[in-house]
């Protein structure tokens, strides 16, 4: 392992131990935070009892639907816009300022339209992720070297084979950025929406535990989400590294 990786591991462990110590010695009161070891212990109990399995699967399902539709939708819209330069120039200012609009303000509106179910939650996750994917798809397609397209034409590749053998691999780094943002944004969108207003899911369970002063459950579930998101991110990170390494970059 590299030196930086070692130090990073030590830093993270040190931070957790520091928190543990501060909580145990009462510097951080029990009403504010419980020690990390108790969070983990409580999480283990919750997972074993299966009490929150329904909420967990529901949230993960919503995230998965939002993520997949954001990636597919963003890719398709991005490709179409890329082939229509005039429309793209017209829409560009809107895309550039898109993330300045505080999306969650629309969430209550979506609840009014669709009712208090999974649809507005998934839609918020989708809306949050799709534009990152659109922008990155267009950036990726922009960066395909002209010479490769010409080579494809010289070799008589059809449009489909050109797309598969030339365009997709050339655009891969940007597509990966888009996918990573889309996964982060769908998690953020879904959990925040559940948190603000919903009747089930992990975000709702955390808000519910908070309102009932049930700190143990709350921190256990927070730990669960943080661990889960970190693992998912690490997975994509490693996968991307591998693909880049294979290309010798």
């Amino acid at each position: 392992m590299k030196r930086a990786t070692w130090i990073r591991t030590l830093v993270v462990i040190g931070f957790v131990l520091l928190l543990e110590g501060l909580c145990r010695w009462g510097v951080i009161g029990r009403m504010t935070m419980i020690p990390p070891s108790e969070m983990a212990d409580q999480l283990w109990k919750l997972l074993q009892s299966g009490r929150y399995n329904g909420h967990i699967f529901e949230t993960l399902g919503n995230v998965a639907v939002a993520f997949v539709s954001a990636v597919v939708g963003g890719f398709v819209i991005g490709s179409i816009l890329h082939s229509l330069p005039r429309a793209r120039r017209a829409i560009d200012p809107f895309l550039a300022t898109y993330y300045a609009i505080p999306f969650f303000a629309f969430y209550p509106l979506l609840v009014v339209i669709f009712g208090l179910n999974a649809a507005p939650i998934i839609l918020i996750g989708f809306l949050f992720g799709v534009v990152a994917m659109i922008i990155n798809t267009m950036n990726g397609l922009d960066r395909i070297p002209r010479v490769l397209i010409k080579t494809a034409r010289v070799n008589g590749l059809g449009p489909l084979r050109t797309a598969w053998l030339i365009k997709l691999p050339s655009a891969a780094p940007q597509l990966f950025t888009g996918i990573k943002l889309a996964i982060a944004y769908s998690f953020i969108g879904v959990i925040a929406a559940e948190f603000i207003m919903s009747t089930s899911g992990l975000g709702y369970s955390i808000a519910y535990a908070f309102n009932n002063f049930d700190n143990r459950t709350m921190y256990a579930l927070m730990l669960f989400i943080i661990t889960l998101v970190t693992i998912v991110n690490a997975f994509f990170h490693v996968w991307e590294r591998r693909i880049m390494a294979r290309r010798g970059q």
């Binding site: 990573k180 943002l181 996964i183 982060a184 998690f187 953020i188 959990i191 925040a192 948190f195 975000g203 955390i206 579930l221 927070m222 989400i225 943080i226 998101v229 970190t230 991110n233």
Partner: peptide
């Protein structure tokens, strides 16, 4: 950065 900070 990619953590849903709402959980915090």
């Amino acid at each position: 950065y990619s953590l849903p900070k709402i959980t915090l």
